[in-house]
């Protein structure tokens, strides 16, 4: 049998013609079985590893159902500051969102998890923008002289009401966040992050 296989040219399954049918079959069985079993034992550790590696792609309920992360109310609003701290001229002030930060196994309370710009619009409406640029996620700066927001990374610029300029690389305007006022002067913002680079707002959860 040995010399028969040595005579095959490329290690393929073709057997020499003068071997008996029985040996052919046996060789075929051994080859198939070797490939199958060898395949299984090779694949198992990869599958086990890949399954764990792909864990971030599986959406799962966070550890405690029904509980909001620190500071958030049941509708997803969080207190950011006082109306009194907003400039009267309608220019924006920057606020940190402080809540629980959950990073894999580490849970830390009172951590900054994001930034928002808040301004008082002409009709005394409270307007909030997520400070993260919708283009690629850098934090935008506010330039008082121009009364506009400018992203330091790719020069996306946005007017004071969040609208992007015509030559802005960003695909959408600054992400405006719903606000509400509680207890006369507390500003509460429905803080959310969105995917970057899309024309539509798609929340990242």
């Amino acid at each position: 049998m040995g010399h028969e296989q040595e005579s095959t040219d490329s290690g393929s399954k073709s057997e020499s013609h003068d071997s008996s049918l029985g040996e052919n079959r046996r060789g075929f069985f051994a080859q198939t079985a070797a490939i199958l079993i060898g395949g299984v034992v090779t694949v198992v550790p990869f599958l086990a590893g890949l399954y764990v590696f792909l864990d971030p792609l599986r959406k799962r309920n966070q550890a405690k159902s029904g509980e909001e992360p620190g500071g958030f109310d049941s509708e997803g609003y969080i207190k950011v500051g006082s109306i009194d701290s907003l400039p009267a001229d309608g220019s924006p002030a920057i606020f940190r969102i402080v809540s629980d930060d959950v990073d894999a196994w580490t849970v830390s309370g009172n951590q900054p998890i994001g930034k928002v710009y808040i301004r008082k619009a002409d009709d005394d409406e409270i307007v909030a923008f997520n400070a993260s640029c919708p283009h690629a996620g850098c934090d935008v700066d506010y330039r008082p002289s121009e009364r506009e927001f400018l992203c330091p990374c790719h020069n996306s610029d946005f007017s004071i009401d969040g609208g992007r300029s015509a030559d802005s690389p960003s695909a959408r305007d600054l992400d405006q966040l719903p606000t509400t006022v509680k207890n006369d002067s507390e500003i509460w913002v429905k803080f959310q992050n969105f995917r970057t680079g899309t024309a539509e707002q798609i929340p990242t959860v």
């Binding site: 049998m1 040995g2 296989q5 040595e6 290690g11 060789g27 051994a30 080859q31 079985a33 070797a34 079993i37 060898g38 299984v40 034992v41």
Partner: peptide, 18 residues
């Protein structure tokens, strides 16, 4: 009889690994 590594010994090795 002499044989070669593939496929007879490979099969045995694979079964042992399994």
């Amino acid at each position: 009889e002499d044989t070669t590594f593939w496929p007879d010994q490979v099969l045995r090795d694979a079964v042992a690994c399994l």
